[in-house]
Design a protein around this nucleic acid. Structure first.
Lengths: 115, 115
DNA sequence: TCCTTTAATCGATAATCGTCGATGATAGAT
DNA sequence: ATCTATCATCGACGATTATCGATTAAAGGA
């Protein structure tokens, strides 16, 4: 796998992180990574081509959101742990926000009786 | 003051909110609004012209982050309360992240003895 | 050595964004 | 009726971004 670079933790900025997260495709990627596991590109089911997905990955990597670990011909991706130190609770709040809330689930149910 | 429009709460999306917050100027605006009070444009000290500031305000408004309340010739701006219902804890996490953490303050102190 | 796989990079294109100065709209004051 | 203050809108510009298909790099397997 090709060489990939990560920014040092001290030059990760909030604006850049939020900007990186402010895209539906990248939000979906982060949502998948939210399980704390490492993932490969095929794990992210997004409606874009491979090169575009790779580009989004670079955006997240450059922003300091994800970590890319090349191994053999593959590249394992995970959430970058330093993010929690720098911006405590931020990623959690974002991940919680990607899940429908109780009131939204109720609204989606409409008037249905519970099964 | 001219008529301003706000999106209905149910069409505020996470990606759009994060994208709106992912800019240093707008982050500064939100930081000022973090005191929970209403503010006028002159309260935001940002290195851009008036028309650009107004444009950023529109971006935040369209994303559902802020509320604009025209009164007379002025326009009071505040954080939009529905945001907390939709994405609980998100704005708080962002606002906390705009403030330097304890470890960062210690680092900035360098080896200095405390006064 | 050649083939396959995975993912980064390149070059191109269209769309979006941040910025500015100028103008316009609205309300209040003189 | 005019002037002034506040802020939204307009038109233009350059910069950045999202996207694609094609290519390249690196490693593994045949």
């Amino acid at each position: 796998m090709r060489r990939v670079v990560h920014p040092p933790a001290d030059q990760i900025t909030l604006a850049t992180v939020l900007s990186a997260l402010g895209d539906p495709i990248r939000l979906e990627i982060v949502k998948v990574l939210g399980d704390g596991q490492e993932h490969l590109q095929p794990d992210f089911v997004v409606p874009v081509g491979q090169s575009t997905l790779s580009h989004h990955m670079k955006t997240l990597r450059d922003a300091g959101v994800v970590l890319s670990r090349p191994e053999g011909t593959r590249c394992f991706v995970s959430l970058r742990p330093e993010l929690e130190q720098k911006f405590p609770g931020l990623l959690d709040a974002v991940l919680r926000s990607t899940r429908p809330s109780a009131v939204e689930r109720a609204r989606a149910d409409g008037g249905e009786r519970r099964a």
